[in-house]
Simulated assay, not measured.
Amino acid sequence: MCIFCKIANKEIPSKVVFEDEHVIAFHDVNPQAPTHALVIPKRHIAGIAQATPEDEAVLGRLLLAARRVAELTGIAESGFRTVVNSGANAGQTVFHIHVHVMGGRPMAWPPG
């Protein structure tokens, strides 16, 4: 079982920002911005490349939950970045799909 599955199952503690029956969002333990949370589905999906048409609803829930996290953490009005890395070459290090929600500082482009 991956580390994010263990967080979703409450086997590993996390600082939860938002949760419903399908997704959970928690603060990143290695933040790259003043506000940095991760939104994950409670059901394991390794990444975008592994998502199927049956995952359509939960993928939409991830983005709506990201918006909710931005609201709850106070970064929605000033602007925030959402990032989904897909594969090791893109920077994905935990192979359980997740959306980074980052804000609280200006974000440069390209991200690097």
Rank of each mutant, 00 (worst) to 15 (best):
I45G: 02
I45M: 08
I45K: 01
A46M: 10
A46S: 14
A46C: 08
A46Y: 05
G47V: 06
G47S: 15
G47A: 13
G47R: 02
G47D: 13
I48S: 04
A49F: 07
A49W: 04
A49I: 07
Q50S: 14
Q50T: 15
A51R: 01
A51S: 14
A51M: 07
A51I: 06
T52H: 01
T52N: 03
T52R: 04
P53M: 06
P53K: 07
D55N: 14
D55E: 07
E56V: 11
E56W: 01
E56D: 15
E56Y: 05
A57C: 14
A57N: 14
A57E: 15
A57P: 03
V58E: 03
V58D: 04
V58A: 07
L59E: 01
G60V: 07
G60R: 01
G60P: 01
R61S: 11
R61Y: 11
L62V: 11
L62N: 02
L63C: 10
L63I: 15
L63H: 08
L64T: 14
L64Q: 12
L64W: 07
A65W: 02
A65T: 09
A65V: 06
A66T: 05
A66Y: 00
R67N: 13
R67C: 10
R68G: 04
R68Q: 11
R68I: 05
R68N: 08
V69P: 03
V69F: 00
V69E: 02
V69D: 00
A70Q: 03
A70I: 00
A70L: 01
E71I: 12
E71S: 08
E71K: 10
L72D: 02
L72G: 00
L72R: 00
L72C: 05
T73A: 03
T73G: 01
G74T: 12
G74H: 06
G74L: 12
I75H: 00
I75A: 02
I75C: 03
A76F: 10
A76Y: 05
A76H: 06
E77D: 14
E77W: 04
S78L: 08
G79W: 03
G79Q: 08
G79T: 11
F80R: 03
F80W: 08
F80K: 02
F80S: 03
F80L: 05
R81E: 04
R81Q: 09
T82Y: 04
T82V: 15
V83C: 09
V84D: 05
V84W: 03
V84M: 15
V84I: 15
N85A: 12
N85S: 11
N85D: 12
N85L: 11
N85T: 07
N85H: 10
N85R: 08
S86V: 13
S86A: 12
S86L: 06
G87R: 09
A88I: 09
A88C: 05
A88P: 05
A88V: 09
A88Y: 08
N89T: 13
N89V: 11
N89Q: 13
A90L: 12
A90P: 13
A90T: 11
A90K: 09
A90H: 08
G91C: 12
G91Q: 11
